[in-house]
Amino acid sequence: MDKRGYAIIEKYTAPFVQLVLEKNQQRDVFIELSQIKEIFEETHLADFLSHIGVNQAEKSKVLRLFQTCDTVLVNNLIEVLIANGREELFYPILLDSLKKIEKQTNEFEVVIHSVEGLSDEQKARLIPLIEKKMGLKVRSIKEHLDKSLIGGFAITANHKIIDTSIKRQLKAVKEKLK
């Protein structure tokens, strides 16, 4: 996408996110947009909405299916996009809105990479440590099992990494021996 495209997306995203924060609906809107994002990813709906062979009426019809959402702000955003003939921008606006909400609230999904799954107790003990070390609030935890780590874990959130895995430690030793 070119600069003009990003500028158009920003024209919709910035006021939408500002309104979400003013109305203190960031939690509900974030959950709803995340669910819609999953649907878009599973069905490749963004490709359908941006396809030049699909007429405006069909795009509007599909996008209106998401207006059954509980959040009035999301419904209004969809209506504005349809009224302006910008249905194809819904997915990029959705992604940008999610990023902006995370940044404004400083709440992020944390991904924990480990050899084995963590218990609820272990996760509960990790949350305050993650928040302190990374300087953020944990919105949710997603686990990713990775046998190549050998032991320990790696935590990623907001482009930050805490890596205590044995794999990384062995790699560091190998580098020192060179």
Rank of each mutant, 00 (worst) to 15 (best):
K137A: 05
D163F: 02
K167I: 00
I39G: 02
E87W: 04
Q25F: 13
E22N: 13
L19E: 13
I82G: 05
T156H: 01
M1W: 09
K137T: 03
L126K: 07
S140H: 09
I78Q: 07
V138P: 05
S119W: 01
R125A: 15
S60C: 02
V54W: 05
I150S: 01
G117P: 09
A14K: 12
E131P: 07
K3R: 13
A83Y: 11
F48A: 05
K59P: 07
P15N: 11
V72H: 15
K37L: 14
A172T: 12
K167D: 01
R168Y: 08
S140N: 10
S148Y: 00
F48H: 00
A157I: 04
L81I: 13
K137Y: 08
V80M: 09
E88Y: 10
E107N: 12
N75E: 09
I78W: 08
F90H: 03
F48C: 02
K59M: 05
L170M: 13
S114M: 00
K37H: 14
I39C: 11
G117D: 04
S60W: 05
I8P: 01
D28M: 14
E87Y: 02
L145H: 04
K142Q: 15
F66L: 05
E38K: 13
Q122M: 09
K147R: 11
Q169M: 10
E175N: 14
L49M: 00
K23V: 07
P92M: 04
A14C: 05
V20A: 10
K171F: 13
D163T: 00
R139L: 14
D47C: 02
L45K: 03
E121W: 01
Q67R: 11
V138D: 07
E10A: 14
L81P: 09
E143A: 13
A57M: 10
D120H: 12
K100T: 15
Q25L: 15
Q25S: 14
E143S: 14
V72C: 06
C69D: 06
L95S: 05
A46C: 07
F48T: 11
E143M: 10
V80W: 12
H113W: 01
L177W: 10
E32I: 11
A57V: 12
E88L: 07
T164Q: 12
I155Y: 01
M1Q: 08
F108W: 11
H144S: 14
I141V: 08
K132G: 04
L129M: 13
G117Y: 02
L65G: 08
E88S: 10
I82H: 07
K167N: 05
F16K: 07
G151I: 03
L126Y: 15
R139C: 04
S114L: 00
A83T: 13
K123C: 09
E143Y: 01
V74L: 07
I93E: 08
D96S: 15
A172V: 14
F90R: 03
R139G: 03
Y91E: 05
E42M: 11
M134I: 07
E38A: 09
S165W: 00
L177I: 15
E38R: 06
Q25M: 15
A46G: 06
A157H: 01
I150K: 00
K178L: 12
E121D: 14
